[in-house]
């Protein structure tokens, strides 16, 4: 399954690991923040209309 990376296994897997982790972290931060703000805004709009 995992291709044979030869003697560079450490370097290649580390750079993929860290790179993808950073990407995932970035996406997670943006999505979570978006959800939070959206929820708060809906709540605030509801309070205003009420």
């Amino acid at each position: 399954m995992i291709p044979d990376l030869g003697k560079y296994t450490f370097e290649v897997s580390m750079s993929y690991g860290i790179g993808l982790a950073l990407l995932a972290g970035l996406v997670a931060v943006y999505v979570i923040r978006a959800r939070q703000v959206k929820k708060q805004l809906i709540a605030a709009e509801a309070r205003k209309d009420a």
């Binding site: 003697k7 370097e11 290649v12 860290i18 950073l22 970035l26």
Partner: peptide, 20 residues
């Protein structure tokens, strides 16, 4: 922040490539 992360990724992966 996206650009900063991308820069960081480029720097880190570059370091891992430069090492060997």
């Amino acid at each position: 922040p996206i650009g900063a992360t991308m820069t960081l990724i480029a720097l880190i992966t570059g370091a891992f490539w430069g090492q060997p």
